[in-house]
Design a protein around this nucleic acid. Structure first.
Lengths: 276, 276
DNA sequence: AAGTGGTCTAGACCACGAT
DNA sequence: TCGTGGTCTAGACCACTTA
């Protein structure tokens, strides 16, 4: 029997039984080899044996250890990557991902400070300590996409003002914030200048005679498009929340539609509700 | 030169140039082959040429078409799967995923009906038409996990009441809803019976003398654990939102902590805000 | 230079779905 | 039965990081 044929036979056996010739670990019984290897490593991560930041076994070590080809060991690591548990880098190895999230609080626009003592405590538990925020701003005239047009109640492909921001903390991109306004109400105003507006665009909009009385928040949870991944330097296995805010005047006219892209590994979204 | 060596040479060339011997398509220039193939197919999907539900080219077709090994074509499809764009099934092929979402409205607990005309319109645009909801309920005494214990302000591993539900629409699992209560306040009450409480557990809690005055909503966006994926029949490339609600009495005592798992491909989360 | 992960191949067999 | 995707191998070369 040739080596090739022999190893094929062994592979078939390994798919149904797990024999451990002098190896120390115990592998779960069911499923393909790569999945069982992934499960083993996953357990070592969630149990804390492999803490965030630590190096995983190399692909070579795993393939020796479990008696599989490197490609199979690689597939196990890939599964963990797609779950967002680990990241790997050429030349370095795979490391357990650590996630520290900033608090994303949409209500901060209308409630600068937490209302209830519970919320206050929450903020003390998770504080942004000494991290330096920065942002880029870019203003342009664009054709309204179908999503924007429907929410602003304008014709698709009509011209609207887009004010696009990327927010950074300590130089790392954290999220994007793209606001869209009907052309007629912001033309010539400061909103069209690509500079920070310290009092906020909502206040600027109010000063123009369009105060927002109501808002609708929508959240879509999905994987990023390649463009979004690039803009935010997202690794594989990082989902995002697409947060769309539509602001209406008291009369019911939509005057603002903002789309925020929030990488899941960098945010926790928080709302506070009081019973009415 | 052996066939093996020859194809290795061709592979190296293909990595740097794209030559199309009698083929019709145009491939993008940069990156590894599998990524360029994925990009081509992705464009055909987003452009509408491959509508939701339609079959993708088979792995064999792609490998012929682009002159790569089937494993490489396979990797391209895998990339699209991890983006949540397609699903593939053994024996059938890969199909473009279609996503229709139900509206998830946390505020429905306190605001059964939309407050503003804008919201009303929103609901008319996306209505659940003739879909049949059902659920399973399971009540048990469990040790509080660290996450639950912290929010309910009890000792970790102390005993709490867990009321676990899986909600279905037309027989398909849609989301899970696991409520946790301090043992002492619900012992012997109807909350411990695994049956539906038509007026809601919040009202039942109020009737026990613990009306909730405030709530904190938290959302974590991540890929599902294998257990969550199994419980909700999630395919690869489907992220989830973990929605945690903590309810407090007027005095500030936490009396309820609910964790909801919301698959991203089945929900859009909606809030309504009015300016104060 | 050595070691790591990234990509790719040619070929094999299995599991599943349609015919 | 046939065609599909799913898994796996043994080996190759590239790209990157570290020493």
């Amino acid at each position: 029997m040739s080596d090739q044929a022999m190893s094929t036979v062994l592979a078939i056996l390994a798919r149904h039984f797990y024999v451990s010739p002098g190896r120390t670990g115990v592998m779960s019984a069911a499923g393909p080899a790569y999945r069982r290897i992934a499960e083993d490593v996953r357990k070592r991560i969630t149990s804390g044996e492999l803490p965030p930041g630590s190096l995983l076994p190399t692909q070579q070590e795993l393939s020796d250890r479990y008696g599989v080809a490197r490609m199979t060991a690689r597939q196990a690591i890939a599964e963990l990557e797609n779950e967002g548990l680990v990241t790997s880098q050429q030349g370095k190895g795979a490391t357990v991902r650590s996630r520290q999230s900033m608090i994303y609080r949409p209500q901060a626009e209308s409630r600068p400070h937490p209302v209830s003592p519970e919320m206050d405590r929450y903020f003390k538990q998770i504080a942004d300590e000494g991290r330096k925020p920065s942002q880029t701003i870019e203003v342009s005239l664009v054709e309204a996409s179908a999503d924007i047009a429907r929410r602003l109640e304008v014709e698709e492909k009509s011209i609207v003002v887009a004010r696009k921001r990327v927010r950074f903390i300590d130089g790392e991109p954290v999220n994007t914030n793209d606001s869209h306004f009907p052309l007629d109400i912001v033309t010539g105003s400061e909103i069209m200048h690509p500079a920070d507006i310290p009092r906020g665009t909502n206040q600027a909009l109010a000063d123009l005679g369009y105060p927002q009385a109501r808002m609708i928040d929508e959240y879509f949870i999905r994987m990023p498009t390649p463009e979004e991944a690039k803009r935010l330097s997202l690794g594989a296995g990082t989902p995002i929340a697409l947060h769309i805010v539509t602001g209406y005047t008291q009369e019911g006219r939509p005057v603002r539609c903002t789309t925020n892209v929030l990488p899941g590994d960098r945010h926790v979204i928080v709302y506070e509700r009081t019973w009415e």
